[in-house]
Design a protein around this nucleic acid. Structure first.
Lengths: 105, 105
DNA sequence: CAAATATGCAACCATAAGGTTGCATATTTG
DNA sequence: CAAATATGCAACCTTATGGTTGCATATTTG
């Protein structure tokens, strides 16, 4: 996984509106664009742009169905983000441990 | 933890330069601004602005020491980010399970 | 003390982001 | 078929972002 791709995932999650969209998707049943765009405090077209940002970061996938378009969460992106943080934390803990051992000598 | 604060953490991680800074910090010993600003492909002042973004998101803390300023990772922010993703994944898995049970009837 | 070092701050610039409005287009449905 | 519904696309505006340069300031060090 490239650094840039990871950054894109985090960037996609780095906005309150998009975060709410992702949360709704993880919560309930499959939602279409229209449903998803409601109650975000912005226009449908504004919401569309945010959803597109999630698509570009591959956090979400679009599935056309008739005149609707279903929006589906891609949990792989979430996992990649989580894995990256986990790796950082592991390095950090290791560093703290080494520091502790050093000072205890 | 407010939605906005979480979004800010992800936003801070959502840039290749900042991601690299965080990685360096999790890796090695405590670094000062100057060290941290090297080899990022941008000027010192440019790097400074990125570090400031990390400070604002509380991903990193500054500790002045003489004429230097040490930059330290705040692992709490990482954990908050990871926890948020973990919660999303849990909801998602639960939803998938419910769907599976529904189709199996 | 003077020179070197580490940093800070402000102005500036180009581009990206977040949002809007208006209009076009495909698909249902009565 | 006509009306309603769900969506797409483009232009536009304002503000944020990522970066630069130039200069000021504090701390070491010879």
């Amino acid at each position: 996984m490239s650094q840039a791709a990871i950054a894109q995932i985090f960037k996609a999650l780095g906005d309150p509106v998009r975060l709410q969209i992702v949360q709704r998707l993880s919560n309930g049943a499959a939602l279409c664009m229209g449903e998803l765009s409601k109650d975000l405090g912005i226009s449908r077209q504004g919401a569309r742009k945010q959803i597109q940002a999630l698509v570009s970061a591959k956090v979400v996938q679009l599935h056309p169905a008739g005149r609707e378009v279903k929006v589906q969460l891609d949990s792989a992106a979430l996992q990649q983000g989580r894995d990256f943080i986990t790796a950082l934390e592991a390095q950090w803990d290791q560093r703290l441990l080494a520091l502790k051992q050093f000072t205890e000598q």
